[in-house]
Design a binder for these strands. Structure first.
Lengths: 330, 330
DNA sequence: AGTTTGACACCTAGGTGTTAACCT
DNA sequence: AGGTTAACACCTAGGTGTCAAACT
C-alpha cells in the first residue's frame, strides 16, 4: 500500500530521480504572505534543555514552538527578525503513527557541537552557497534518543525560510538590515540521510551527521542539493520519519507531515545565505574551526614553507646563472 | 581507516554488528574436503555471453555451473586449478521466492570492464591484502537487468575459495605452483552494497560498483572488510537478494541461500591474494591502469617538478646570500 | 628464503577562503 | 556599488606501489 505511485522511482527514497523532477518548480510549498510571527507546525527541541512547560506535547500537526530558548542564543544582526521560521503548510498525509508500542512520542533529538553553533550565532551565522554546491560549516550533527529500537526510520533534513525578507549587510555598522521582501520560492529539496532507512537502534547508536549535505543557489540544480536564495535567512530542520510513513518522502518534495513524522529544529542553527562572506568575524571563525580552511590560518600564513623559500630565492636569484654561484662556500 | 565513521549497529543489514560477531570464527561455512571438481551451488553468468545449454536454470540450491566459459579466459598460472570455486554449503533458508509476478528468474548480471579483467586474468590476477584493508583493482562493477522494477533488493558480494590449495609464485618460471593445502577457514564476510536496499528500478538504472569493498588478511578485522588468506585463489560472487529474503543477510554471516537469492560470478575475476605483488607484469598493469598509482608510471618518473627544481637550485645555491645576486639582470 | 609489515613519496578527489573579473 | 562567479593556492582524506626491515 502506498508504495510508489507516479514517482519514476519505485523505491521510495534512496536514489530518486533527480533528472526531470528536479526541474519542476515548487508549487504548493509555502505562503509568502506576512505570517512571520506565527510558528505552528514547528516543533522545537532545544539542545540539552527541556521545555519548561509541555516538553513532549505534540497534537496532530500543530505542535509547540520552543521559541523561548532562543533567548539563550541572541543574534545581534537582525533587527526585524526573531529567528523563528515561517510556517510551511504541508499536504495532509494519510500516514498514521506507528502501531502498537511506543510511537516515538518521546523521541528526543539533541544538537551536537552546539557550543560552536552558538559562537557563530552570536556573530550572525553565514553560509556560503555556490552553483556547484557548498557544505555547511558547522555541519548539523544530532544525537537521537528514545526511538523504538526495532522500528525503521528515515532521518531527513530540510531548510526553511525564517521570514519573508531579503537582507543586506551594512559594513559600516556591521549589521544585517532588511533589504526588501523575499524572492520567489525555490524548488523544495530534502536531504535524506544516506543511512536511511535504518532501525531506531542504529540511529541511536551513532551521531547522525549531515556533513555531506550541500547548499546551492542554482535553481536548476540536478545534484540533489538544497536550493536556497542568497541573502535570506534560513532554519535547518531535522525530521524523524517512520519507515511506513516514508513512502511520500522524496529529495524533491516537501517533507510529508503526519503522525509518523517528527520535526526538530535548533534556533542557534539559523543562518544567512551569502555568496561571499560579509562579516569578517564569521570568516575568521570559519577559518579557525574548519579543517579544510587551515591554509588560511595565521599560523599557516606565517609559514616558511617550500613556496616561501622558493619565492625568497627567486628574489635574489638571477635570470641566468651567476658564475660566482657555481662554487658556493669554499 | 577509510570509513571508520560508521559505528557498529544491529539494524538488520545496513551496518550490522562488526564488533563481537566479527571475532567469532566461521563454523558451518564450507567443507574443506577434496571436492574441488564439483561446482554445485554456484550459478554463473558469463559476461555478455549466455550459457549455451540451460541459462536460467536454477533448481533450489543446486544450480548450473558455467565452467565452460572459463575457456575464454585462460589462466596461464595455475597448473592444478581450474578456477572454479569450491562448493560452499549454506544453511537452508526459509525464505521463499518473490510472490506473484516475475521472481527474477530471468535476472541478468553483466560484468563491466571485463576487458581489463581479462587482461589481468591472462597474466594471473593478484590482489594485495593488508591488515588495514585494501581495495580491489579492478573493482567489481556490474550492470543488472531484468529485475522487477517495483521489488526491493539487496545487492551483496562475497568471495569464495576456488580450491583447497595454497599457492607459491616461482619466479624463475614466472608461474604459480601449488604449495600445499589451504589454511583453515576465515570468518565469513559479506559486503552489502551501500545502496541496499533499493528497488529493481534503482539498481538497473546505474552501474553497481563494489569499489569501496576492501580485502584484509586480519582475521580479527572489525571494519567489516572481507577476510582472506594470502597466497590463496578466490572467486568473487555477486548476489541479488529479495528484500523479504534479506532478513538473514549480515556482513558477518554467509549469504543465505534460498529461492529469493540469485548468485553470479565471472571466471575472469578469479584472483590470487598476495601481500606483495609477485608477477611484475601484474604490477605494471596495475600501475598503468589504476589512477592512484599514477606516481609510478614512467611518465611520472621523469617528471621535473618543483621538488626536483629546488634540488637543482640547492646544488649551486650558497649557504649565505651572494652580494652579486642582489641586482640581477640590470 | 619466502612472506609480511610499516613508513614513505606520490598520486586522486575534493573541501576551504581569496582574489580579480564579471554582472546588473 | 553590491552581488556573483571562476580560477587558484592550500588544505584534508585517503588510495597507490616501493623499499627496507622484520618476521618465521
Amino acid at each position: 500500500m502506498a508504495e510508489k505511485r507516479r514517482s519514476p522511482c519505485a523505491m521510495s527514497v534512496k536514489a530518486h530521480a533527480f533528472s526531470v523532477e528536479a526541474l519542476i518548480g515548487a508549487e504548493k510549498r509555502r505562503r509568502t504572505s506576512g505570517d512571520g510571527d506565527l510558528f505552528p507546525g514547528y516543533e522545537d527541541r532545544q539542545d540539552v534543555l527541556d521545555l519548561p512547560g509541555s516538553p513532549g506535547l505534540r497534537a496532530g500537526r500543530a505542535s509547540t514552538s520552543d521559541q523561548g530558548s532562543e533567548a539563550d542564543c541572541p543574534s545581534d544582526g537582525s533587527p526585524e527578525s526573531d529567528d523563528a521560521p515561517l510556517e510551511r503548510p504541508q499536504p495532509v498525509a494519510s500516514c498514521a503513527a506507528a502501531p502498537g508500542t511506543g510511537t516515538g512520542e518521546e523521541t528526543r533529538v539533541e544538537l551536537q557541537g552546539s557550543d560552536l553553533w552558538k559562537r557563530f550565532h552570536e556573530i550572525g551565522t553565514e553560509m556560503i552557497i555556490t552553483k556547484a554546491g557548498r557544505r555547511m560549516f558547522p555541519a548539523m550533527r544530532v544525537k537521537i534518543t528514545d526511538l523504538d529500537p526495532h522500528q525503521q526510520y528515515y532521518i531527513a533534513m530540510d531548510i526553511i525560510p525564517v521570514d519573508n525578507k531579503r537582507y543586506r549587510y551594512v559594513y559600516h555598522s556591521s549589521k544585517w538590515m532588511v533589504a526588501g521582501n523575499a524572492d520567489s520560492p525555490v524548488p523544495p529539496r530534502v536531504y535524506i540521510h544516506p543511512d536511511s532507512p535504518a532501525s531506531g537502534e542504529t540511529w541511536m547508536r551513532q551521531v547522525v551527521s549531515f556533513d555531506k549535505l550541500k547548499l546551492t543557489n542554482n535553481e536548476l540544480d540536478d545534484q540533489g542539493h538544497i536550493i536556497l536564495h542568497s541573502m535570506h535567512k534560513y532554519q535547518p530542520r531535522v525530521h524523524v520519519i517512520h519507515k511506513e510513513c516514508g513512502d511520500d518522502l522524496s529529495p524533491v518534495r516537501a517533507v510529508p507531515d503526519g503522525e509518523g513524522t517528527r520535526t526538530f529544529s535548533f534556533p542557534e542553527t539559523v543562518f544567512t545565505t551569502v555568496t561571499a562572506y560579509q562579516n569578517q568575524q564569521i570568516t575568521r571563525l570559519k577559518i579557525d574551526r574548519n579543517p579544510f580552511a587551515k591554509g588560511f590560518r595565521d599560523s599557516g600564513r606565517n609559514r616558511m614553507g617550500l613556496e616561501a623559500l622558493v619565492e625568497s630565492y627567486a628574489f635574489w636569484r638571477p635570470s641566468q646563472p651567476c658564475p660566482c654561484q657555481e662554487y658556493p662556500q669554499t
